[in-house]
Design a binder for these strands. Sequence first.
DNA 1: GTCTATAGTATGATAGAC
DNA 2: GTCTATCATACTATAGAC
Lengths: 197, 197
Amino acid sequence: MPREGTAVTRREELLAIAARLFAERGFKNTTVRDIADAAGILSGSLYHHFDSKEAMVDELLDSFQQELWVRYDAIAASDRTPRQKLEDVVRASFDAIDQHHSEVAIFQTDAAYLGTFDRFAYLEERNVRFRTLWTGLLAEGVASGELRSDLDVELVYRFLRDTVWVAVRWYRPGGDLTPGQVADQYLHILLEGIRHG
Amino acid sequence: MPREGTAVTRREELLAIAARLFAERGFKNTTVRDIADAAGILSGSLYHHFDSKEAMVDELLDSFQQELWVRYDAIAASDRTPRQKLEDVVRASFDAIDQHHSEVAIFQTDAAYLGTFDRFAYLEERNVRFRTLWTGLLAEGVASGELRSDLDVELVYRFLRDTVWVAVRWYRPGGDLTPGQVADQYLHILLEGIRHG
DNA sequence: GTCTATAGTATGATAGAC
DNA sequence: GTCTATCATACTATAGAC
């Protein structure tokens, strides 16, 4: 009977515990003893399951991003309009915050630092792919007339990217709002603005 | 001749060096040896100027926030309309990102963790003040008819707060865009939306 | 204001028994 | 799969000389 998330094996259970602690305190502020304590074992026992603390966060970030990109690629390959694809990507991202809250939080807090090491070079590669996807959709939306023609695509991209992912700081899975409701409100603000009339 | 920022005393120079490193790597990922190395002295010498590494980041965050709140309070006390005050607060915040880039970056990355310690309890107090200021202005803007009446004030507050401060991740002082130009574009997106028509 | 030297502790990780 | 025991290192901080 797993106690943490959807873990089924002992290894997955330990990884879920590590994910929660990394997300709550940050990677560097979480010691292997913290993780072991939370799991009810001693720190040395963790190394039966994982090579290192770095290997744990690596596995968390990599598997999460691989799963996310399956969905992004499907959206990009769909036959919806650029603006619809933009909305789909935003919705997929809020779903990820809901379903992989710890991983997104770790990514937000620690990816910039981790990315400076060779082992985590893939983080920067995926950032480039992400930027290509979003700016492409924005440019297509402008070209198709769905989005305003005076937009600074680069700046809107950063605005959009950051507003979506930073929501992990306040969004709580299982709370009042579903990820779909948050996405609806974010998209409404983004598309229509908050000014009256 | 100070080499870092506007430092005039040795103490200020060391603090500016620490600020830059904390902002680049995070507080926990920066050792007192890193700071001393960057300053060209040995780690023990730092303790002639500061009680501890914590005292350094404390001084950085506290003095920055005090300065910021002088400006926020002036805006709140002005006779401009709610929507104009909202714009003024956004502009003041982007100016802060421009002029106190390191401090804002440290706040974004490390404040959540630091705030769990008694010494940094003021961070949470100021967050509450910040929320009160922004949600008050949003509610007044709705009441005055300047903002749409169907807004979820709490959600728009979080949206606005996060979009403004997270810009520290990509904004570079002295780059192509002035803080005023970034504020103009952000406010335009926020008020009018990105949809065509 | 900085250096020399070092104390005291926390940390990531390993080897082998059970 | 976990424990016992421990190593090697990195870290914050201190005391006193210069």
